[in-house]
């Protein structure tokens, strides 16, 4: 009975436990420290002088922080909204039809932002947008909305497409059989069943837009800082725990959205 062969398990490799712990420490310790010092009563990042919410109060009172936060949020909402609509159409166009030549190519093209290094996209946009600004004289937020939208499309597309692929196409046949016009079949069957994927796609692209530094940094005009680029700018000066407080709030917002995303895409029992 002792000759039972145990299947290979990575957990029995020497050092597995140590490496796992080290990985988690590297992942989370810096963030824990960041959050910890956001509650520091003193000025320091290394000397905790007692618990206080003064830096949160300072952050909320800071008009610049308010301005860039609002800009970040509406930019993310606009970009994610447009990207989700486009991604839904793209997903319907690439999965709800008979295979067509060039399908894989189109799939790759849609997902370009996942493959091209962000800094390359950033520089390309910088050159292109600078040219447009000179030619048109327009320097408004439109460039940022357009760039963020393009960048967000694959993040909206992937969950919508995944949802669409699990949808049984006979449901649409059944709707047509029961006298639904193609538009009605979409409205009453496909769209409602697609909603979790669409919401997930929206949230994911919202967070991506909220997060991105590189694209914004290259595309923005003067006075168009978002929260991340503002923070980056501030870090070049004195770093007070106010920055920790802003980062902690930002982190909390992202966590809420990402958690909602996972709840939506989770497979139901």
């Amino acid at each position: 009975m002792s000759a039972v062969v145990k299947p290979f398990s990575v957990r029995r490799l020497p050092g597995f436990g140590a490496i796992a712990i080290l990985t988690f420490v590297l992942l989370y310790l810096p963030i824990v420290i960041l959050v910890f010092y956001s509650f520091n009563a003193g000025q320091s990042q290394s000397n905790f002088e007692g618990f206080s919410l003064r830096w949160y109060a300072a952050a909320f009172a800071n008009e610049q922080v308010q301005e860039v936060s609002v800009r970040s949020l509406w930019l993310a909402a606009a970009a994610a909204g447009i990207a989700t609509v486009l991604a839904t159409l793209a997903a319907l166009g690439t999965t709800r039809v008979a295979r067509f030549p060039g399908q894989t190519m189109i799939y790759a093209l849609i997902n370009q932002p996942l493959m091209v290094p962000e800094v390359v996209t950033g520089i390309a946009l910088l050159i292109f947008v600078a040219f447009l600004k000179v030619q048109t004289g327009y320097t408004g937020m439109g460039y940022l909305v357009a760039s963020h939208t393009a960048f967000c499309i694959p993040f909206a597309y992937l969950p919508i497409r995944a949802r669409l692929e699990t949808l049984d196409p006979t449901l649409e046949s059944a709707a047509a059989d029961l006298y639904a016009s193609p538009v009605q079949a979409f409205r009453f069957i496909t769209l409602p069943l697609l909603v979790p994927g669409i919401l997930a796609g929206f949230m994911l692209s919202f967070v991506i837009s909220l997060d991105t530094v590189v694209i914004t940094e290259f595309v923005k005009s003067a006075g168009q800082d978002t929260l991340p680029t503002y923070m980056l700018g501030q870090l070049r000066r004195v770093v007070t725990p106010e920055m920790n407080a802003i980062a902690t709030l930002f982190l909390a917002l992202s966590l809420v959205i990402v958690t909602a995303f996972f709840l939506l895409t989770r497979k139901r029992g």
């Binding site: 049984d168 006979t170 449901l171 046949s173 059944a174 047509a176 059989d177 029961l178 006298y179 639904a180 016009s181």
Partner: peptide, 14 residues
């Protein structure tokens, strides 16, 4: 199919 006076019971019910 939506213009025919015919209804279907699908194998997987749908």
């Amino acid at each position: 199919p939506n213009e025919r006076p015919v209804n279907t019971v699908f194998q997987n019910y749908a």
